[in-house]
Design a protein around this nucleic acid. Structure first.
Lengths: 213, 213
DNA sequence: GAAATATTAGCACGACCGTTCGTGCTTTTT
DNA sequence: AAAAAGCACGAACGGTCGTGCTAATATTTC
């Protein structure tokens, strides 16, 4: 009987943890994980500093939890809309479109959360970099899986390298995010969309396939 | 008469300013411009905090001076080796190679300085973002100029869009920098090099030109 | 009801931040 | 030789940071 029933105390704790993390991903996507401050979160949310601190135990744990929260939000926004699509180049293309929409509609107010924190920690070893690298690895594997799937369906030319294609697609998306933010201008998203199609067509067995129209 | 002779006082001041900035670009390329702290610079260099502060007047001015110093280093490392080359697609390709070498050899210890600070400030309006955006604008115009040159020499196909090509090339380079740093692995540079050639060949009038071998 | 447990609040700490001020030292100008 | 200019110094300011400690407040279990 113990434990199975909902405990209102821990339930309340998890609720405030969620509240804190919701604000934390917003701040971190704009100013980075280093700019996350426990005192500021507490002030913003009307909580006490020690209360926020107690919910995570340390600043680093708060930062790690923020990364985990961002992963969930990312998966919901980018992956979920396309996971049930039929495999092939069309699915790859729709995934890229989904990603560009995720950046353009500012699911995170600072654009792509992972672009921000990667630049922040890619040259600083430690648990945060490891967590970010793991997130990237998973995302890259997802894209690569879809591209490889398109090869098994015969839509990719013989010489096409799925890894190089994956690298290129991710580069185009990430760069669109960066330029659009920096110049406060949406045209990089259009350029990225065209460049994605350009690359997929170049490596497709049928460049005029309707999925690439 | 006044002013024309060398003033040993201001000369010494400029020397320490250079010393400070040399260290500042290193720190900022790894940890960002926000992590630049006057006290830390002073300790690292054996100077007094107030001395470092006096040399720049404010932290923001120090950050702006750091960006200017990084621009000079970037131009020396990336542009200078190719500026005197003959125009054409080969020059575009060599510029990309020069950039990849600039990242791979860690001219800045944290990889591309501008990748780091762009992610840090692209969603935060202010003088720093403006200075970074101006740097980007200049760099993009440089690449675009070279690509456009390749069109006047007849090396680019009729339908090729120099702006889209420029966007793609920069995306590939920047992404190679990011991935190589995050995973401590050089293969992204190889992927980027291949992808650059892939795109240039796709838009070249002669994909088998020796410059693209 | 009382006891046990988990979340939150209040407060103080040492460290570092950017900045200001007054002062000494060296070099240029008169 | 005297005066002015410019750089670097040490000390101190108010403020924010992360992090402990203790008390108060809910909620559950007996």
């Amino acid at each position: 009987m113990a434990g199975s029933t909902t405990d209102g105390r821990v339930l309340r704790g998890e609720e405030t943890r969620r509240t804190v993390l919701r604000r934390a991903v917003e701040i971190a996507s704009v100013e980075g994980l280093d700019s996350l401050s426990i005192g500021r979160l507490a002030t913003d949310l009307g909580l006490s500093k020690s209360g926020v601190f107690a919910g995570f135990g340390s600043k680093e744990e708060l930062q790690l939890a923020t990364i985990r929260a961002a992963r969930r939000i990312f998966a919901d926004a980018v992956l979920e809309p396309v996971v049930r699509d039929a495999p092939g180049l069309g699915k790859v293309r729709r995934l890229c479109d989904s990603w560009l929409a995720y950046s353009r509609t500012r699911v995170f107010p600072g654009g792509c959360f992972f672009y921000e924190v990667t630049a922040e920690f890619d040259a600083r070893p430690g648990p945060l970099r490891d967590a970010i690298a793991a997130s990237w690895h998973e995302w890259r594997a997802t894209v690569l899986g879809l591209v490889a799937e398109a090869r098994t369906t015969g839509e990719l030319r013989a010489g096409a390298d799925p890894e190089d294609i994956t690298f290129t697609l991710i580069a185009l998306m990430e760069s669109a995010n960066s330029q659009a933010l920096l110049f406060d201008d949406g045209t990089p998203y259009d350029r990225a969309g065209r460049a994605v199609l350009h690359r997929l067509r170049a490596d497709a067995t049928d460049p005029d396939a309707p999925a690439l129209a």
